[in-house]
Computed example of a mutant assay.
Amino acid sequence: MYSPTPEDWREANRAKWDERVPIHAASEFYDLDAFRAGKDALRDFELAEVGDVTGRSLLHLQCHIGLDTLSWARHGASHVVGLDFSEPAVETARALAVDLGLSQERAAFVAADAYDAAEAVPDSSYDIVYTGTGALCWLPDLDRWAETAASLVAPGGFLYVAEFHPLTDSLDDETGSRVVHDYFVRDPWVDTTPGTYADLDAVTVHNRSVEWVHPVGEVVTALAKAGLRIEFLHEHDASLFPRYGSLQRHEDGYYRFPADRPRIPLMYSIKASRPA
């Protein structure tokens, strides 16, 4: 029997993210001054796999404060739209767009739930629908997400997903070498950890959140059911942060296991297209 989803899951998650927006905006982790000066927020494998975005429209679902969204605009996307359920996050993203000299025609941000994206965004379809790392764990219903995202992909366009691999949630935090949690768990995970990944020592009040683990097969199947064609599923042996104490930071900025340890996937990416 599965544990029921708390009725207030969306409100709890929104309160947590609303509180953390100013902490993130002021943090060294996001380093908005460096971003304003030209630092790219996108990962190299994302740029390679998505390809040239010049002249293309792009929708970013669950965009947080908009750094990835605005980076796609810097890479030549003709029109980018970021969507997030946190009003403070959207306000911060809009201010950043102004700082970068991007008009609303080039970069727009919308405050709305990901499930309501089709009704909330300004256009009915986009050449590229993008969702970045750490997004899917906040959604209980992947079929509904996939249907919504797929409906916004223009004919001949594609959806691109970059995510942390769910296998990493099955392993012990200290070494990442022992399976301690069920990979196929469907129960919501309620967390009450204070602080934030961008500032572990930050004083926070809204610490309760509800998250879900989605196996890779569930993600791929949801996208296929929604009518998209899976172009690739790539698994990556690197992470963006030291998920386990045994991970080591490399010169390229990624974290990997030591060379004498067997590798496992720490991240994955998917490209799924809509026929022209």
Rank of each mutant, 00 (worst) to 15 (best):
M1V: 14
D8V: 05
N13F: 12
P22I: 10
I23L: 15
H24V: 09
A26Y: 11
E28F: 09
F29C: 10
D31Q: 10
L32Q: 14
A34S: 15
K39Y: 05
A41Q: 06
V50Y: 12
D52V: 04
V53C: 11
R56A: 09
S57V: 07
L58V: 15
H60P: 03
Q62L: 12
H64K: 11
H64D: 13
I65M: 14
D68V: 05
T69L: 04
L70T: 10
L70S: 07
W72A: 05
A73P: 03
R74W: 03
R74F: 03
G76N: 08
S86E: 05
A89K: 03
T92P: 03
V98M: 05
V98W: 04
L100F: 04
S103P: 02
Q104I: 01
Q104W: 00
V110T: 01
A111W: 01
D116G: 02
V121H: 02
V121F: 04
P122V: 00
S125W: 00
T131S: 12
T131P: 01
L136Y: 00
L139I: 06
A146Y: 07
A149R: 02
S151F: 07
L152M: 11
V153E: 01
A154D: 10
A154W: 01
A154K: 14
F158E: 03
L159I: 01
L159F: 15
Y160Q: 02
E163S: 01
E163Y: 12
H165R: 04
T168Q: 08
D169S: 09
D169C: 04
D172G: 06
G176H: 04
V180L: 06
Y183V: 04
F184A: 14
F184K: 04
V190P: 15
D191R: 12
A202W: 02
R208D: 03
E211N: 15
E211P: 02
P215S: 02
P215Q: 09
V216A: 11
G217N: 07
V220K: 06
V220Q: 04
A226C: 10
A226G: 10
E235P: 04
L240Y: 07
F241Y: 13
P242M: 02
G245W: 08
S246A: 12
S246V: 00
R249T: 01
E251F: 03
P258D: 12
D260T: 08
D260N: 15
R261A: 15
R261M: 13
P265E: 10
P265I: 07
A272V: 06
A272Y: 11
R274S: 09
P275M: 12
P275T: 12
